[in-house]
């Protein structure tokens, strides 16, 4: 077998491919949120990692103080954090509409540092334990690896969310409005559509996606104030590879970069944290608009 030729046992290879898919699900949901926000608001949302962390913390706090279980938190945490996103947009980001992208980037970057710093101060850097729901404890032996049910659930939930998002944005009337809003907001407004409300809701949705990923991640990593900062740069690279603002690009690239990273962990573990950036550099040279991006 091919894998045997390379001196790697097939079970290790398949295991890593599957794990790559699981990690790719996180990249997909997070980069999807970024793509939605960039596509509709033209904002490079550097606060995305912090909002992902807020999602996980919201779930943890809901469980600790209101005894709401994982499933409740999976619905509530994105709603709460999405609402915070709506407030951020109304009171802060809105003011930057029409100015250079750089200002949005600086504002969101500053917000991220502020939020993360605050949470480190309040909760410490080691993180809080968060148990997976009882129904998803245990796992199944696939022969080549032991697949925890929870990780399987992560892949399924992510794919469903990605598919729904894609459908809403690309195949429904609301999606058409949203896309029209980015192309020509003035014209759309002339047709009687409340464009500012639309973009605010879009930002709220992008943020809710980040929070959703945060809740999904909570039982896997610790609920940790810095969980987002480790991830955000990788997710940005994924968005750049997929093409800024491309919904399909974000989903497909997210999943495939997870797999590429998984493979790198087999053949050259030390490079696993850099491989996505190498791919990004190559893509930027060959296709500056990204794999799925359209050049204007």
């Amino acid at each position: 077998m091919f894998s045997d030729l390379l001196g790697i046992a097939p079970q290790v290879l398949f295991g890593q491919l599957l794990l790559g898919l699981i990690n790719g699900s996180f990249y997909a949901v997070l980069s999807l949120g970024l793509a939605v926000i960039f596509g509709l608001l033209n904002i490079v949302n550097f606060a995305h990692g912090a909002l992902y962390m807020l999602g996980a913390f919201a779930a943890w706090l809901l469980g600790k103080y209101l005894h709401i279980d994982y499933w409740g938190a999976l619905i509530l945490a994105p709603l709460i954090v999405g609402f915070i996103g709506v407030l951020l947009d109304r009171f802060l980001l809105r003011r930057l509409a029409g100015v250079d992208h750089l200002y949005g980037l600086l504002l969101t970057f500053g917000l991220a540092m502020l939020i993360e710093g605050l949470f480190v101060k309040m909760f410490g850097a080691s993180g809080q334990p968060f148990a997976a729901p009882k129904a998803l404890n245990g796992g199944v032996n696939l022969g080549f690896m032991f697949l925890p049910y929870y990780r399987a659930w992560v892949v399924v939930a992510s794919l469903v969310v990605c598919a729904v998002t894609w459908y809403v944005f690309e195949r429904t009337k609301i999606g058409a409005y949203l896309r029209a809003g980015t192309e020509n907001p003035k014209l759309l407004q002339a047709f009687g559509v409340n464009v500012p409300l639309l973009t605010t809701l879009a930002y709220g949705y992008g943020v809710a996606l980040a929070a959703f990923a945060g809740v999904l991640a909570a039982p896997i990593t610790q609920v940790n104030p810095l969980m987002g900062s480790n991830l955000i740069i990788v997710v940005f690279a994924v968005v750049v590879i997929g093409g800024m603002g491309s919904i399909m690009g974000a989903i497909v690239t997210g999943l495939s970069m997870g797999v590429v990273e998984g493979l790198t962990k087999v053949f050259w573990p030390e490079a696993s944290s850099t491989i996505i950036f190498i791919v990004m550099a190559i893509v930027l040279v060959l296709r500056p608009a990204g794999l799925f991006g359209r050049t204007n």
Partner: peptide
Amino acid sequence: SDFSSFVLQAQA
């Protein structure tokens, strides 16, 4: 943050 693949290599 993610140790799953390293853990699987250790298992193998």
